[in-house]
Nucleic acid binder design. Sequence first.
DNA 1: ATGTCTTTGTGAACGCGTGCACAAAGATGG
DNA 2: CCATCTTTGTGCACGCGTTCACAAAGACAT
Lengths: 237, 237
Amino acid sequence: MATGRSHRPATRSRGIPEATVARLPLYLRALTALSERSVPTVSSEELAAAAGVNSAKLRKDFSYLGSYGTRGVGYDVEYLVYQISRELGLTQDWPVVIVGIGNLGAALANYGGFASRGFRVAALLDADTALAGRLVAGLPVRHIDELESIVADNQVSIGVIATPAGAAQEVTDRLVAAGVTSILNFAPTVLSVPDGVDVRKVDLSIELQILAFHEQRKAGEDDRQEPDGDVPAVMPA
Amino acid sequence: MATGRSHRPATRSRGIPEATVARLPLYLRALTALSERSVPTVSSEELAAAAGVNSAKLRKDFSYLGSYGTRGVGYDVEYLVYQISRELGLTQDWPVVIVGIGNLGAALANYGGFASRGFRVAALLDADTALAGRLVAGLPVRHIDELESIVADNQVSIGVIATPAGAAQEVTDRLVAAGVTSILNFAPTVLSVPDGVDVRKVDLSIELQILAFHEQRKAGEDDRQEPDGDVPAVMPA
DNA sequence: ATGTCTTTGTGAACGCGTGCACAAAGATGG
DNA sequence: CCATCTTTGTGCACGCGTTCACAAAGACAT
Ligand SMILES: NC(=O)c1ccc[n+]([C@@H]2O[C@H](COP(=O)([O-])OP(=O)(O)OC[C@H]3O[C@@H](n4cnc5c(N)ncnc54)[C@H](O)[C@@H]3O)[C@@H](O)[C@H]2O)c1
Ligand SMILES: NC(=O)c1ccc[n+]([C@@H]2O[C@H](COP(=O)([O-])OP(=O)(O)OC[C@H]3O[C@@H](n4cnc5c(N)ncnc54)[C@H](O)[C@@H]3O)[C@@H](O)[C@H]2O)c1
């Protein structure tokens, strides 16, 4: 920034593009790997390759955080790890509850990548009374009725939903009412939440269908023989 | 649209925006639910609400598929289900292999949403010989060395990776060499693949970090007290 | 100190995606 | 057959994200 460069960017943290935010964890992962190998500095070109993005995009992304690079040298790995961690809010602990401890919920509870980045599993919740008390990943499964008190006592602001789709909205409503303002949803449903609550979804089925679309296209490129006549008799009114 | 409308859109399937493709599964899910309730037609407004998108966006999305609606009435549910299914390539069967049958892999194998949409689990693969032969979701776990023959024999074109990050690239290379051209990656690593191979990733850790970013911002809105002085002595060279 | 060489930070152009707003299509009722 | 009313399909404008390309910053050697 040539014109009027201030020492403290202060309120620049506002206005980081969403697309950039989504890439910061990617950079952070690559930087952490470099850090573990004691690499002191890295160029935008190298880091971009490691993160699988365009180097100009990476530099622009970092420019939103401030001028943390040194021309002719690159970026200081440790410093950048710290800056990105701080920007993402990973320098503090985030208590998380997982609701629905079935196949997926149990796998999530066992996932090591949780704790590694400031996320702490505060509790595992399930409606099934037969599960109550059973240990999963070293934590006892608690009954869903304890949701409200657990969220309040642990100041949980992030909830993970791994219940069947039919229960997801109800669980969401309870989480939100209890004070949770961020939800990661694994159930294949659209959740409605009030303003101020963020929802992100992970949907295996959707990802596969997108892959299938492109796969079909690839197959169609070569042998262009449409199976025609397959069209059902139903036509739009 | 009005000018020269042909009966068979034929090669219009080319040129569907990626953003639209990503939403088609969402529409399909909502439509399937309507179909099960025997709802004959639905307006763009209603369907958009069910899918959680803007109605104009939905209409534009459908316009890429063709003119399947009736003005004044809406869309024929059954017909639209068929058209979207066909567009996504779900009218055919997609054999899929899952590699890495640990916590997550087992959960994926047990996932019902797999088979429900034309995806068939052709095999479960793992490097752990102790797992070989054990039944998971009714299927025996096969040893990773069978990968090549299984992919070839079943004409598998989609692979799901649920191994530790360290093994993901190696597994990818073997899958690609064997003929797989679409990969869904659950391991937290950037995969490199040759042109013509699609990779989509699902990364819990990234999703949580994005939520944490917004969560931190929300918290900062009210009590704006930056913990300053927290900055480490490390400065960029 | 000066020159060279590397690499950042960003201006600018472009393309994609989104959403408004409305004309036209077509159903429905008289 | 005509009028009215609903809802689609899309032209258009706008904003965001991506990428190129390059001036300038700064390291490093002499
Ligand atoms: N398993 C997967 O790989 C996978 C993949 C993608 C999506 N999903 C989705 O994730 C969700 C969970 O999948 P799963 O395979 O673990 O299912 P599951 O049936 O094994 O587990 C669901 C758990 O949720 C609990 N539950 C039900 N209603 C509840 C409620 N109201 N409150 C709290 N807990 C409740 C059940 O007791 C059960 O333990 C489903 O919506 C599924 O579609 C799963
Ligand atoms: N568990 C989760 O909820 C979760 C969430 C997000 C991401 N992930 C990621 O998914 C992956 C799997 O997680 P997990 O919890 O199931 O781990 P896990 O250790 O339980 O399972 C990994 C499995 O992969 C097998 N494996 C190792 N090397 C292999 C190879 N070269 N070829 C074939 N199989 C091999 C192992 O034998 C093991 O069975 C990890 O990369 C993890 O980071 C897991």
